[in-house]
Design a protein around this nucleic acid. Structure first.
Lengths: 246, 246
DNA sequence: CGCGTGGTTGAGTCATCTCAATTACTGTGG
DNA sequence: CCACAGTAATTGAGATGACTCAACCACGCG
């Protein structure tokens, strides 16, 4: 289980040991449980072991914007640790497990394990690239395209995480959740999904997505997976950049 | 001029020397000139000396989404350097000057100048926090609130950069630019700005914004400057975190 | 003088939202 | 075993925010 954490770097044995010893506790979260709240002081970071989390913001008028979905292998909390406090919350969408790394151990990791720190940084950078794509998604695309794009992204990410089976992947999210992620009302999400189903693009039931026409879906979404930087593992193995945050 | 680059860290003399020697060239950009294009390979990073730049994405259908505005002291290109290629473009909004740091020098900086590398990282982290806020902005707020929020953010950032004069600050952006940043059409931006003017909130002329009712503006925008992490300079000076990306 | 850019206006259309009600399902207590 | 409550999905209908198209105006510049 712990082996999937660092998707990016090829770790040496010593690194693995350090990583294992750095993990403070594995926490089990129930659905809808918050594990990090906006305004919290820095408290180390965490890695998702399994399940599905999301980061989000609540606006003063009560509206909620989901900022990202976190699946197995994703990390969070690093930014908050460095900047001093968190500007967003993180919650479990379904029962999930995370491995926490307390701040003190994090320092040790950064000091002694360049490959691990590198993996943490890169994971964060990729998440930032995803954030940028989301700005474009909610800013420029219509409902149909937004949801399509979201589905494309999740499909590719689940596939990269080895969690998809053919054209199907698990995405136990409610329509309200899709709305909060895409900046749409529940009703409109519902009607748009129906249209996508009628168009033979996808079906979504029991928390599982089935993509019937991947190419067409990516086409209407204007999806280009470049921003997910899936090729990093490879490049990384070939040429272990020394420069990194050390 | 070069002194304003690292807004975060208090630099030692040695650091300053290293920084100066690391700077490859200062480039002058004319309005609308691109200095980084989506898909470009890694090429080091740069610091804005003066002027105004923006990062953006062009969608397949030709629409443009502005992802961020970059003012004096902001950096860009670090993420691309580490991830291998860029997922967005950067262009000058008005004639501007930037100082570039080639990739090789960047490595030296990371290896030898922890405070400088720390400043670079933090600048990037704050920009990512801004990205998250923008997702919420375009996702959940209406036109009036979006533009208000954008104005609040730019006001605070210009003020923090020492570039504002009282209630006025320079923001030489076209209404089309505001539209591309807020995910709105030009016409709607125009009408919304007129309404804001009529409501006595702001005026915008000759590339200068005047805020007539700051409190009310921040109120309608639901603006909370926490995500800009303006307090970092101070905290930094008090307690120079050792753990950092070293 | 004429052109190009940026700002402004009018009018009609469409996407999306809100309100409100219905259905299906699941877990719980009696 | 059934009634009930709560959540999620669905549907209808009306309202409106935002868009598009198409002008027109003002200004600066060659």
């Amino acid at each position: 289980l712990v082996r999937k954490l660092p998707r990016f770097a090829a770790l040496a044995d010593g690194d693995m040991q350090a990583l294992v010893s750095a993990i403070g506790a594995t926490e089990s979260l129930s659905a809808d449980e918050d594990c990090l709240m906006e305004g919290d002081p820095a408290r180390g970071c965490a890695v998702v072991l399994d399940g599905l989390l999301c980061s989000y913001k609540i606006l003063p008028d009560g509206k909620r914007q989901i900022l990202a979905f976190l699946i197995a292998g994703d990390t969070f909390g690093l930014s908050a640790t460095i900047l001093g406090h968190t500007d967003h919350s993180v919650a479990a969408v379904i029962p999930s497990r995370i491995a926490t790394i307390p701040q003190s151990k994090l320092r040790d990791l950064f000091a002694n394990c360049p490959r691990i720190s590198q993996a943490l940084w890169q994971d964060m950078l990729v998440q930032n690239a995803i954030s940028r794509e989301w700005i474009a998604n909610v800013g420029q695309r219509n409902a149909y395209q937004r949801i399509s794009h979201l589905l494309c992204e999740m499909r590719v990410r689940f596939e990269a995480a080895g969690l998809s089976a053919g054209a199907r992947f698990p995405w136990p999210i409610t329509q309200a959740g899709i709305g909060d992620a895409a900046g749409l009302s529940i009703v409109h999400v519902n009607r748009t999904l129906q249209r996508m189903r009628a168009d033979g693009l996808i079906t979504l039931q029991d928390g599982e997505v089935t993509v019937h026409a991947q190419e067409e879906l990516e086409d209407v979404a204007g999806f280009d997976p470049g921003y997910l930087y899936l090729n990093i593992q490879n490049r990384k193995t070939e040429r272990p950049m020394h420069f990194a945050m050390q």
